[in-house]
Design a protein around this nucleic acid. Structure first.
Lengths: 253, 253
DNA sequence: CACCCACTGAATGTACACAACATTGAGGCG
DNA sequence: CGCCTCAATGTTGTGTACATTCAGTGGGTG
């Protein structure tokens, strides 16, 4: 059992994650830290769809008790980021094509509203802070830190949503972003599937004009672009054995 | 400590709740049962906004260990139905006016989309089943079972949403309905604030015509009516000491 | 040879004990 | 007389042991 420790290359980056992640006040308890760790791993594509998250392994890796692991997993399950069946443990979701379209559709619905409210509430200062965030994203990608780039790309959407002061829709988006990350992991095409940071800069520009409809239009197109870059036509993602043989091992939902 | 058992009048209606509640497959584990019990109590207005949910008390009342109680509370916290602060326990949320408007606004956004998809996916059979549900709701109210009527009223919206096959938006609505129930409890005016079942019948009728825009219009008006029946002008709900002295005891968020 | 069933091992569900933290009240001090 | 300190108490956070369930396996039988 102890030999399984090195099986997973997840490093726990103490202070880094609590800074980079948007989740702020919840890191006080241990399960909040673990929750963020797993979330970051998913956003960075270090954890793939379909991976089984065994409680013993996680407790070994992060040196916490199963109690803490269970809490973290329960939260992820409630976010619909992992799937928990009674007595059968937790696995990272593998959205099928139908579900993927559903999630992306909900994102469009919700972000259309969020950007409307954000546009009405934006100030020059908050937009500048947002711009800095996108620049950092761009720099990470240039340095070939694709994983961090991906996470920061999600961060942009969440920070943008925070401008709106709509905490309900914000909490939904916080679930949708990791789900989208998993969808990208499953259905990405050879060409890059990152949010283009240029589009992020464009979005900031439109918001600063105060034109709500235009902002909604740009955001919607941005999300459609993401969807178009995916290969949602045929179900399996190329080169992924898990997808190719999904019907053998587990016929999900 | 054992003497506190009789303090809370919550009865645990074994089989009843698992039938009446929409939550279906989750009642296998004990925490799912407790989760549904608390949710039903909120929907029936047997539990009010601001009530402290102590782990020991709940574990005594329902004869389960604190482990189970904690899981249930954690789920409720994630639904934003209870508020959990580290080391400070769980209390049922008390949405202020701003938050109340936000939640009702999100409901309108989400149900507008849900009824669109439901209209496109509806069949005569599914609509008939829905009609039976509303009739049962009407009968409960006629028999003065206001609590059950309230819960069934929420059930209508959820069952309607289930027609749409959009599980993401459905899960959001499952959080929004109890939140709405708490808002109604806080801000209800002397005249009845139930969803009028007549409007529910109307909604079913419009859906059966297949006219999406009309259905959206009717649903939107229905939700606006609910909001209009509330007294969101002045914050306190009449006769509720908790609200009246909220600024003294705890200045929430 | 294929199918069925009991067994076994591993993983999860639950309970309880202890530790850490927050709240509150009394007492002392300024 | 009011304020501060600190201990007592209650409540939550965490770790661990035990119970339960499930999946895989091996042997037996039709």
């Amino acid at each position: 059992m102890a030999s399984k420790l090195k099986k997973n290359p997840i490093t726990l980056k103490e202070s880094d994650s609590s800074v980079s992640s948007i989740e702020d006040a919840m890191s006080k308890t241990q399960d909040g830290r673990l929750y963020n760790e797993i979330l970051d791993a998913i956003l960075d594509h270090r954890l793939s769809p379909g991976v089984k998250l065994k409680e013993d392994e996680l407790s070994s890796i992060f040196s916490v008790s199963r109690t803490v692991v269970r809490r973290a997993l329960l939260r992820l399950a409630h976010d619909r980021i992992v799937d928990m069946q009674p007595n059968r443990g937790a696995t990272i979701i593998r959205p099928d094509v139908y579900k993927a379209r559903e999630i992306l559709g909900v994102r469009r619905l919700i972000e259309r509203e969020l950007i409307k409210e954000a546009t009405l509430a934006a100030t020059p200062e908050s937009l500048n802070a947002l711009k800095l965030c996108v620049e950092s994203e761009r720099d990470q990608v240039r340095r070939q830190h694709i994983g961090s780039g991906l996470r920061l790309s999600g961060d942009f959407h969440i920070r943008l949503a925070q401008l709106s002061n709509n905490s309900t829709l914000l909490s939904y988006l916080k679930e949708l972003v990791p789900q989208t990350s998993l969808i990208i992991a499953m259905y990405q095409t050879p060409h890059h599937t990152l949010c283009s940071h240029q589009e992020h800069f464009d979005i900031i520009d439109v918001i600063s004009t105060g034109d709500v409809s235009a902002a909604q239009e740009v955001m919607d197109r941005h999300l459609v672009h993401i969807e178009e870059k995916l290969d949602l036509g045929n179900e399996r993602s190329p080169g992924d054995l898990f997808s190719a043989f999904a019907h053998v091992k587990n016929e999900v939902e």
